[in-house]
Structure formats: structure tokens, C-alpha cells
Design a binder for these strands. Structure first.
Lengths: 345, 345
DNA sequence: TTGAAAGCGCTAACAA
DNA sequence: TTGTTAGCGCTTTCAA
């Protein structure tokens, strides 16, 4: 049996209320008793039961975090940013992984309600109707990360994936590329899948360039292997693109790996651009042109919004915080060879 | 105010005990009442208060996890492995980051006791005496990850870092290298710092090779920058090593980056080996020789030990689980040039 | 099969 | 300044 406040009180010869007051500094207690109580605490190794306290105070000091996965620098960076804010305001985190499974996400939202989280941070890959309904009717403040939710009264933090993709593809176009392919993610993934693809699509359309199925490939897991496979299918087309945009750096690196193994030189024969600017991007050869954004900052800002709400510094109403990004041009993209040959004529 | 069991009971016209019995299936309840209660639950959107339940049952179903950092593939892999086990046995996780700060680790151990964790998983970078004392006297089962604790009665999971380093350096020696340097981590980091350095040291000594200060460098953060700086100081020595062992892949990649920028070819002019085999290792050029081990498995196995203890399938006594590793030879290490020249004479 | 009532360990209102 | 006591929301005896 763990030591309780009763035992400490008995040992110090005071009432449990006095012990509580000393430990919480909630009311003045004479130095003499304080001394005795502190000694009794020390002797018994008493640790106040935070569960009992939560029960009375109707708050747990806990923030529930839901991420699709964690062994991915994007989400681990996110969690790190969240942890920084939690630490700052003395909140503690519960962490669960949804595996991008809507059923599981719903279950987790319910479990976090049951467990009386003070707030919830939810990095949602998609936005399932049942989950959305749950979040809307739930009476725990929740910030959704990576999903715009303007129609409902839930704050969220995102980056403008579509615009970032658009700009990256535009960079390729400005280098003279006319045949631009893409390895994209699953389109049900609203943020990194759909929006990034749409930005690509829009850039091509607006510049009157062809959007050809043979030059696009879908990867389901945003990993290196997706990039290898995607590149293989694209590279085996009779007519090849001169530039490739990938929905994430890992896909881009996979594509580069495929090409390197075949002695295709980058960017001479194919320009490649990625997205995310993870550490990897500047370590591969050639260094990857990509979109830099900060998952840490995303986590930090989302958690700030949540703690602001919890501290009643802010209302829990609709709000979409759009964070910055930056297209970082490195060595994997270059002027289109065909174009320069054209000039040389 | 959130809905309580009282409200559900009133609505269904039964006692709160009956509601509890239906929701927990703890005792038989007539179908008629069961029906009414389930409806009332549905109508009110009642979510049982898990905090109140924990209070009575004296268990929370929570596992407290402490890691030094999370935006690092080693620890995020670890957490993923832990999560898999937690999920399997319906435990939930609390996650906190210690930033390798012993003071903070102690605080976290106490907070987790206060918060009534059923068990604790602690990835300790060092082993501070105060923390060790806390863990020993604590009456919550704890598994320490990455620290051998045979003297105390605490289970732990580790890999044999010293032996893995030894073997990697031996691989370099077998390639004919006689002048072998190392970029190591801080020596207070028992696992990745001290043990890996000792393995290197032992290999040199046993083979009668020189251990020279000018060929070793210490990095404090196990990052790419540590590798760049370390390589710089080593490469600027009048006499240079022909091979380099690094305490982690990032350091190795940093060293390679430094050399590449100076047009030094790897492995011709310098063989480089790393440790960890993170994804990065097989994506850089040349692909890195390194030590493969699995943080996921480490997390999984540690969590298994803990859940076994919690399910009373295992006693909470001393036990050190040593996981496997494997030296993966790739393209960044090759026969010592000086040796082959020697042969060619 | 059901209900009444006694706590779990603590905080906070009320009394002294 | 200190102690007494009433719960927080639930599970689990015990009795009916």
C-alpha cells in the first residue's frame, strides 16, 4: 500500500487538511507544523495521489496527443514542439498513435474524453465524418493539426501545402521544364497527399503544361520505397519528364537512388524536388531542392493555441493558423537541358 | 458539466450500481434494464470518468515513458515499439522528455509516481545516483532502457555497445587499417558515449595499434555538426588516420560531408564507419558501413517485460535483456590503400 | 437481479 | 491558524 495523506497527518500529529495546505501552499500554516509535516513527508516518502486531486479539481493537467505515427521526423518534431509548450505550462502529455486509422482515431478521442484530458491535440491525416462529429460535440478543447476546419468551430494549424507545391513546381517551370512529373501521396491524405498534388496540378494547368498520368505515380506511405517504385514506373515510359516533384523528401531520395543506380545524373538528366526539408535533404548528393517548414514550430504553435484556451486567454472558436514555409533551392534542380540546347541553336 | 453516471441512472430509472454493472459487464443485468441503460447512455453521450475508476481500482492503465529526446529516430523508434505493446494490452502512454537532464529525470520519476502510473519505461542516458535511488525505492515496476543495472533489482534492456564497436573496429583492422580514429560521444553517456568508445579502445589495444588523442574527437550531441567539427580537427593533423569509426551515423555522415566538400574520396582516402544504421546510412553516397540494431525492437521488448510484470507473468527482479546487433558492411569502408600498395610491391 | 451505502485519497468550505 | 466534514464519480460490498 502506498503512503496516503492520512499516514503523514498521523505521523505529524495534525489533520489531513493541514498536510494538504502545506503541500499545496493553499493556506498559511505555522512554521512549527509545516516543519513537522515536511519531515513526515520525507520519512514516509509520501507522494500525493494526483488522481485523487484531479478528481476534485476537475482537471488533470493532461494534454492528449494523437499522431498517425511517430517514427517519422515530421511527427516526432511535432511532438517535440508540443512537449516544449507542455513543459512551459506544466502540462503532461498522453501520446497515442492512430496509424491513420479513422476508427482508432475515434476511439482515441473517446478514451481521451473518458480519461479527462484538459485538452487534445490531434494531428489528423484525414477527416473522417464520425471523428469530426465527435470533435464537434466533445466538450474538451481540441486543436486539429494539419487540417483546415474553418466550417466548424475548431481551431487548427496548417501550412499551405497547395501553395508551397505550386511554388516549387513553378520553380521547375522557370528553369525551363515543360515535362514535369510527380510522385504523390495517397489522395485521401488531405494535407500531404491531396493538397500537394493539387498545387502541382494547378501550376501545370496555369502554365499550359501537360498533366500526364504516365508521369505521375502514387505512393501510399511517403517512404523511400515509394520513391523508388514511382521513379521506376515513370522512368520506363517511352517519353520521360525532365523534372520531378515529390510529395516528400523520402520519396525524392528514393527516386534519386533509383536513378543513381542506373547512372542517370541529377540534375542534368532529371531535376528532382522534394518537400519537408528533413535533415536528409541536405545530406544526400546532390543536395535536394525542397520545401522547408517546421514541424517543431507547428507543434509549438498548436500547443500554444491550446494552452491559451486552457488558460482562458483565448476562446475556443474557429481559427486557422497558417504557418510559413520556404522553397529551398539546392543542387538537385537545374535549368532544363533541352531548353539550354534550344538557346544554343 | 459533463454527464455522470447519476444522470444516466436517473434517465433509465435504475440505480447507479446497475449502470456500472452494464457498462463493465461485471454482473448480470436483465435485458430490459440493460436496454434502457444503453439508450440513456446513447442519448446523454455519457463517457465514464476513467479518473474516478482509477481511484477505486487502484490502477490507471497508464505507462509512463521517459526519453531524453524524441526528434531522433532512435527514440521515436523506441516509442513506436513501446506503443505497439501498449496497444496490444490496452495500456495508454504518458510521454515526457528529459533532455538528458538528471534533475528533470528525477522529477519525472516522482511525477509518474504521483500520477499513479502502473509502470514506467525509462530510457536513461546516464545513471544519476539520485535517480537510481528513486527507482530502487519506488513501488512502481520500472524497466530501464539502455542501462545495465545488474547490481540493482531492476530489469533493463540494452545492446552490447562495447562489443558492437569492438567488432566494427575489428572490421577496419581486418581491412588492413592501422591508423584508426574515432569521433565519439560524451563519455558520461554510458551507452552510446562511453561503451562505444571503450569498444574502439579495446580493439586497438588488443591489436597493438596506437590510440592517439589527435585522431579522436568528442561530439556532445551525436549530430551531423559534431561529425563535421570532429572530422575537421582530425583531418588537420599532420599525420592522418586511414579509417574512422563514429559513435553514430549522423556523426559519420557529418564527417563524410566535410570530406566530400574537400574532394577527399571515401573509402579510398579514408574509410568511415558509423553506428545505428538509421535510414540515412544506406541513402548517402557512399553507403555507410554501420551497426544495425533495432530501437523498435528495444522498445517492444522492454515494454513486453513491463507488461509481463504488470500481468504478473514475470517478477520484477533483476534481468538484463541484451538485444542483437549486426555489423552491416557497405561501401564506405575498404581495404587500406597503404596496405594494398604494400602488397603490390 | 437490483439497490443502498461505504469508501478510493484528496481538496475546499465551514467551524472553531 | 487549525480541524471537521462533505463530497469528486465511480466500483463494490452487503442486503434485499
Amino acid at each position: 500500500m502506498a503512503v496516503t495523506i492520512r499516514e503523514v497527518a498521523k505521523r505529524a500529529g495534525v489533520s489531513i487538511a493541514t498536510v494538504s495546505r502545506v503541500l499545496n501552499g493553499s493556506k498559511p500554516v505555522s512554521d512549527r507544523l509545516k516543519q513537522r509535516i515536511l519531515e513526515a513527508v520525507e520519512e514516509t516518502g509520501y507522494r500525493p495521489n494526483a488522481v485523487a486531486r484531479s478528481m476534485i479539481q476537475k482537471k488533470t493537467g493532461l494534454i492528449g496527443v494523437i499522431v498517425p505515427e511517430i517514427a517519422n521526423p515530421y511527427f516526432s518534431g511535432l511532438v517535440e514542439g508540443i512537449e516544449a509548450v507542455a513543459n512551459e505550462w506544466s502540462y503532461y502529455l498522453m501520446l497515442a498513435i492512430s496509424e491513420k486509422n479513422a476508427q482508432r482515431e475515434l476511439e482515441l478521442l473517446r478514451i481521451y474524453q473518458s480519461r479527462q484530458m484538459d485538452g487534445i491535440l490531434w494531428a489528423a491525416a484525414q477527416m473522417d465524418p464520425a471523428c469530426r462529429a465527435e470533435v464537434e460535440k466533445m466538450n474538451i478543447p481540441c486543436v486539429v493539426i494539419g487540417q483546415r476546419l474553418e466550417e466548424v468551430c475548431i481551431p487548427s494549424a496548417v501550412i499551405d501545402n497547395r501553395r508551397a507545391s505550386y511554388e516549387t513546381v513553378k520553380h521547375l517551370i522557370q528553369l525551363g521544364h515543360q515535362r514535369i512529373g510527380m510522385i504523390h501521396g495517397p489522395l485521401w491524405d488531405v494535407q500531404s497527399g491531396k493538397e500537394r498534388f493539387e498545387g502541382y496540378r494547378q501550376a501545370l494547368l496555369e502554365h499550359g503544361l501537360p498533366l500526364r498520368d504516365e508521369w505521375t505515380a502514387e505512393g501510399l506511405r511517403f517512404d523511400v520505397q515509394d520513391g523508388v517504385k514511382g521513379m521506376e514506373s515513370i522512368w520506363n515510359q517511352p517519353e520521360r519528364p525532365t523534372a520531378l516533384f515529390c510529395a516528400c523528401d523520402r520519396m525524392a531520395v528514393g527516386a534519386m537512388t533509383y536513378l543513381k543506380e542506373r547512372g542517370v545524373s541529377i540534375p542534368e538528366e532529371l531535376s528532382v524536388a522534394g518537400f519537408d526539408d528533413e535533415e536528409l535533404a541536405s545530406l544526400v548528393t546532390p543536395r535536394l531542392t525542397t520545401v522547408r517548414h517546421s514541424p517543431y514550430q507547428m507543434g509549438y504553435e498548436s500547443a500554444r493555441i491550446l494552452t491559451d484556451i486552457l488558460r482562458r486567454k483565448r476562446k475556443s472558436t474557429s481559427l486557422t493558423l497558417t504557418l510559413d514555409y520556404q522553397v529551398v533551392i539546392r543542387d538537385s534542380t537545374a535549368t532544363c537541358k533541352e531548353l539550354s540546347q534550344h538557346w544554343n541553336k
